[in-house]
Amino acid sequence: MKICISACGKDPDSEVDPQFGRCNYFVIIDPEIGSVTSIINPGSEASGGAGIRAAEAVVGAEVDTLLTGSVGPNAFSILSEAGIETHSGIKGTVAFALREYQSGKLALLENSNASTHSGMNKS
């Protein structure tokens, strides 16, 4: 099972980043086989629609579960369409967030907890 965590850096010692759409990296851990990889979040550089680009990348990485802080409704609709379970409330390091998840301390998101908005307002 692949678990994806929004983070400031690339490895398990990095701090998590609770902002899903604009975090720098996604650290992807498969606890069963002990693999750790990471991808750059393409949303972090987007002028608008950051959450959408980020969610697309997470879906593309074929993960099963996402651990993060807040997810907007746009990104959430992509994640749920792809069948990815999202848990919120991460803090500390990536490794700590994973342990918290494994001990059942991170709440499953039923709805997006971030308000909908237009991304950037350039017009």
């Binding site: 902002q19 604009r22 972090s44 550089e45 987007a46 002028s47 608008g48 950051a50 991304g119 950037m120 307002n121 350039k122 017009s123």
Partner: peptide, 9 residues
């Protein structure tokens, strides 16, 4: 230019 979420971020 307009304030963007990116710039604030």
């Amino acid at each position: 230019e307009e304030a963007s979420g990116k710039l604030v971020n």
